[in-house]
């Protein structure tokens, strides 16, 4: 399959995504070489906050104007069975009428951080395939899933009224990464209270952007135009300030980093876990197994051992 062919139709794009999810690094790196650096809007927030519905409403208006839009919806993989229920499409039925929209659901594959190892590859394929804009919906998140910042050019954090107080707002994590905050379901609970709490942290960022906060009721289309305006504003801001190129560069580096991380995980767990368990059962010294794993990953653990011995007060022989 070559990339020019892939770009030509929906079915081929879908197959190419399956290939990279399956670990086809040839297609993945080919796509990485060909990315054009299009806008990726990362949408994140707690489960049930309305991420899919908001994306659907925003994408509807943009698609109507003729923009070519791709949407990636991520849902969690079961830690028990390895299966998943991917249910983001169900909120996006109204987009079925557009030929210029492509939707794909993917699972986390058990990886933490809000995305799968191959999410960047999927984004790169869609970028190379000629879409104008990609929405990347993370899994429903808690506080700490900030990986989306390595891929997205604009980050929209979806909040709902009534969750937590000001102390929750000033903590590190997700609320630090949003370029745009949307208090969705604003018809339920104290949305204005939430906005007041949020203003505590809406200060100018290092790059000069002042995060925006707005209300919406996605199901009735309230606030959607305002969100689109804010997205546009941020899009122009990063171009004017020359930050966009840096963000695209970050995405490329992050893509490559994921290959390395996945490789390590495979060495540590998937490929060898049973071998190691059997070795431990047979009475092999655990520290020797650790040495072997570290060597396989290209880390000379012997040096660490020397340093450990030199540290005063640690005593003994070390690990």
């Amino acid at each position: 399959m070559n990339i020019d062919e892939i770009m030509s139709d929906r079915k081929k794009i879908a197959k190419a995504i399956s290939e990279v999810e399956n670990g086809n690094t040839l297609i993945a790196t080919e796509a990485l070489r060909r990315i054009r650096g299009i806008d990726v809007i990362g949408v994140t927030g707690v489960p049930g906050s309305g991420k899919s519905t908001l994306i659907s409403k925003i994408a509807y208006k943009m698609a109507k104007e003729g923009k070519k839009i791709a949407i990636i919806g991520i849902d969690p993989t079961s830690p028990f069975s390895g299966g998943a229920v991917l249910g983001d499409r169900i909120r996006m039925k109204e987009l079925n009428r557009f030929d210029n929209v492509f939707i794909r659901s993917i699972s986390t594959g058990g990886k933490l951080g809000g995305m799968s190892y191959h999410t960047p590859d999927v984004i790169n394929i869609l970028d190379a395939a000629g879409f104008d804009l990609i929405f990347l919906e993370t899994v429903g998140t808690g506080q700490d899933e900030v990986d989306v910042m390595n891929i997205a050019t604009t980050i929209m954090v979806v909040l709902v009224p009534t969750l937590g107080d000001e102390v929750q707002v000033i903590k590190a994590g997700q609320l630090e990464i949003g370029d745009i905050f949307v208090v969705n379901k604003a018809d339920q609970g104290a949305a204005d209270e939430k906005i007041k709490e949020m203003t505590l942290i809406l200060k100018e960022r290092k790059d000069g952007w002042i995060p925006k906060i707005m209300k919406s009721v996605a199901v009735t289309n309230q606030g959607i135009d305002e969100i689109i305006r804010a997205l546009d504003e941020h899009k122009n801001f990063i171009i004017e300030k020359g930050i966009k190129n840096k963000k695209i560069m970050e995405r490329m580096l992050y893509t490559i980093k994921q290959y390395a991380l996945e490789r390590i995980e495979n060495i540590m767990y998937n490929e060898n876990i049973e071998k190691y368990i059997n070795q431990i059962k047979d009475g092999k010294d655990i520290s020797r197994i650790i040495d072997e794993i570290m060597l396989e990953m290209g880390v000379n653990y012997g040096k660490g051992r020397e340093i450990y011995r030199k540290v005063e007060g640690m005593g003994g022989e070390g690990p």
Binding site: A14, A84, V85, G87, I90, K93, R104, S105
Partner: peptide, 23 residues
């Protein structure tokens, strides 16, 4: 299995489109 749940009131065209995009 990975299950893509698309819900009620689907036309045959909707179903085929989802099947293609989701491979």
């Amino acid at each position: 299995f990975e299950v893509i749940y698309t819900g009620i009131h689907q036309t045959a065209e909707d179903i085929i489109r989802s099947a293609i995009e989701e491979d």
